[in-house]
Write a protein that binds this DNA or RNA. Structure first.
Length: 276
DNA sequence: TTTCAGGTTGAAC
DNA sequence: GTTCAACCTGAA
């Protein structure tokens, strides 16, 4: 996608490929705040302010390269939408609805912790817990706190996580942090989808759905399809009545192949947002 | 008072 | 290998 870089700013002129609301509210990220005129996005120890103007979108940040990668700006989503539409015409409504979605490339550790917290939980509380973790164990960056590294978070106890609102997931978070303490994420990122999946499933609190989310939203794997309650509804609408998640998961991967990740986001977002 | 929310775990078939 | 109850918490 075409974009322009200035000192502390990225300018995006093609709003058909970049909609802040679609990108941030399509379920892939929890650490952001919406204000009247902008979204403030927090990732790792970085911050960006995303403003939608009449003729363009602006990303204000002191780490431009990080957010060029984070927002996946060098991928052509017009082409992706075209390919999807051609192969799967039933997706037209979903793609038209979430036309400005882009799949983020988020911090590995932060994404793992975030989605462990997401299980059987609601978005509001997930966001609250994550900001609690930042405030209590992150680094003070002035007007915000960084997300702690595994080394910073290892001092957190089960009691600490409970106090921050994690509930029964507290013990998962302690164990997961410990498991990830000496992991080289650059090496992990080299694994193929099957190997990465196996690694992620070995982390306490990570099941198949959470593993799929981590692979898609942090490791940029496209041949994964997170199946949650919303996708189950999609499946019942467009495919067939089926309530076994494993079977739904397998059939969706079979159907969408290497386009699974993208397809999932358009279908998920439209299913959740379009009230009928 | 129940139900529900981006599921996972561990134990019992 | 598969099924199934239990699980923090607070808003609806």
């Amino acid at each position: 996608m075409k974009y322009e870089i200035q000192k502390d700013k990225i300018l995006i002129f093609d709003k058909s490929e970049f909609c802040p609301k679609h990108i941030l509210e399509c379920g892939q990220i929890f650490s952001y705040k919406k204000t009247d005129e902008a979204y403030i996005v927090y990732s790792s120890d970085k911050k960006a302010i995303v403003v939608e103007k009449s003729n363009c979108c602006e990303i204000l940040t002191d780490d431009v390269p990080y957010f060029v990668n984070f927002f996946d700006l060098d991928t052509d989503y017009s082409q992706i939408k075209c390919d999807l539409l051609k192969k799967y015409p039933f997706m037209k409504k979903s793609i038209d609805f979430g036309y400005g979605i882009r799949i983020l490339k988020q911090d590995f550790f932060e994404t793992i912790i975030s989605f462990i917290i997401s299980s059987n939980n609601n978005i509001k509380r997930i966001q609250k817990i994550l900001f609690n973790i930042r405030e209590r164990f992150g680094k003070n960056m002035g007007d915000y706190y960084s997300f702690p590294t595994p080394q910073m978070l290892k001092i957190a106890t089960e009691q600490d996580f409970k106090e921050m609102g994690a509930g029964y997931r507290a013990k998962y978070l302690v164990k997961a942090t410990e498991q990830l303490l000496n992991v080289d994420f650059l090496e992990v990122a080299k694994l193929d989808t099957m190997q990465l999946n196996k690694f992620l499933l070995s982390i306490m609190g990570v099941g198949q759905k959470v593993a799929d989310c981590i692979m898609l939203f942090a490791f940029a794997k496209q041949n994964v399809f997170p199946v949650d309650t919303w996708i189950e509804k999609v499946y019942c609408t467009y495919f067939e009545q089926e309530h076994n998640r494993d079977i739904i998961h397998k059939k969706l991967i079979d159907t969408f192949g290497d386009m699974s990740g993208y397809a999932q986001q358009y279908l998920f977002y439209s299913q959740r947002e379009i009230k009928e």
